[in-house]
Amino acid sequence: MKRWVWILPALVIGTALGLLYGWVVDPIEFTDLTPETLRADYRADYILMVAEAYQSEKDADLAARRLAIFGSDSPAEIAASALPFGRENGFSASEISALETLVAALRAWQPASGAAP
């Protein structure tokens, strides 16, 4: 009779160890991910790169194309999403300014005409 007492604890311990191994020790590794899954700081930094390039290129069409990797939101919204992160995480004044310039340009940008007014 005593022998059967150990089955339930063994089952529980086995399950717990299985979960620990599957979630912590050797979780499934994902590759070939899409940019929507990027961590917030990488996402903000990508948008900052687009803003820095825009400062020099002044090409809203190209900036919008670069931001389109984040999905179907409007490019202005995508660009604006980096601002709160930048303000809270020590982006410099020039970087914030670059982001603001990009957001303003993309808000004025019309995809049909293909260029900011």
Binding site: A10, L11, G14, A16, L19, G22
Partner: peptide, 16 residues
């Protein structure tokens, strides 16, 4: 108990 442990581990891995 051993079989229960193995079954539990498999269950945990399948879930994870």
């Amino acid at each position: 108990a051993v079989l229960a442990f193995i079954f539990g581990a498999a269950l945990g891995l399948a879930y994870a």
